[in-house]
Design a protein around this nucleic acid. Sequence first.
DNA 1: CGCCGATCATTTACGAGTGAAACACCTGTT
DNA 2: AACAGGTGTTTCACTCGTAAATGATCGGCG
Lengths: 180, 180
Amino acid sequence: MTDNGNRPGQRPVDAADIVAAVVRQWRTVLPELDTDPMELIGRINRSAALLRQAEDAPLRRPGLTRPEFELLGALRRTGRELTPGDLARETFSSGAAVTKRLKQLTERGLVERRADARDRRVVLVRLTEAGRELVDAVLPEQLSFEADVLSGLDAQERHLLAELLGKLLTQLEGRLAARL
Amino acid sequence: MTDNGNRPGQRPVDAADIVAAVVRQWRTVLPELDTDPMELIGRINRSAALLRQAEDAPLRRPGLTRPEFELLGALRRTGRELTPGDLARETFSSGAAVTKRLKQLTERGLVERRADARDRRVVLVRLTEAGRELVDAVLPEQLSFEADVLSGLDAQERHLLAELLGKLLTQLEGRLAARL
DNA sequence: CGCCGATCATTTACGAGTGAAACACCTGTT
DNA sequence: AACAGGTGTTTCACTCGTAAATGATCGGCG
């Protein structure tokens, strides 16, 4: 494939991103360090931070935050009513956070709560018509915006990257679930 | 060309990670959606979240948060005194956050502030001896912990992944810098 | 020299998330 | 039937981050 002068003892990375610069600094100060994990984890974190910062442009227009949108999205894609507990699991946030978001989204008329008939502890949450319409309107914009942001990579690179991250994620999910 | 049916093995989408499951849900509900960006961005975000959640184990022992450690690391790897403004740029956080962290780290005796002689607006921050020792003690542990977390991928996959993310990051940095 | 806009750090007010406690309710056991 | 323990949701107290305002200082320009 690409031979980028992968000489042993010398690193293949002449990349221009910030993480590469940071790693170079570390190596000049503490040369015996194994900096490999930084190159990967640092880049994942940094990419996520950059994406989070910019990616939400189409969401901000209707005044949504990303966690709010993910909550609405979970309801939309499952197609059924979900409990706050379900939503906490689906969006990987605490129950308390879900309660707060539900409060706001209810006030805006995007979701509705109703009591469960059989078990009165549980609350069932569903999208209102307005909520469903909002998700259906925003999601394509958001996806096209994201596609644009990712357009610096060609389709093959994107798929390869997604595949590798999927593999990593599968491992992490198993490994970290075990630790909890 | 995107015949991404549910045939296992043909597309890389038979992955078992959570993002794949989410994408599958979206496709059954809104089949006309181009879900490709989700597979990539979703996985980046989710990986970052999972890593953040677990990765900091060696940091917590000495009672450090990750942002605090990154501040100390910036001082250690540059080898010079930095101003709060520098630190804000290096750690990608707001100036106010840096001020708060400096307060705590100063109280713990890990960093020191001193006034700049030429320009009395600026403050120069440096590691104390204890701070330097702490970074040097914790960093190898942290890196080895991270290497362990990443061990589900083999070396070749890790390097390929790091390389692709580096390319993405380079693009994002340019693109998003332009938007600000 | 003295003012004016710019720059740097800090303070302030506030919003959002978290873990733990509180509350309501269910279920199996005696 | 009553209770004990478990589960689901909400509330509470707290921490952390941010944006905007504040205060101090610099540099240039009339």
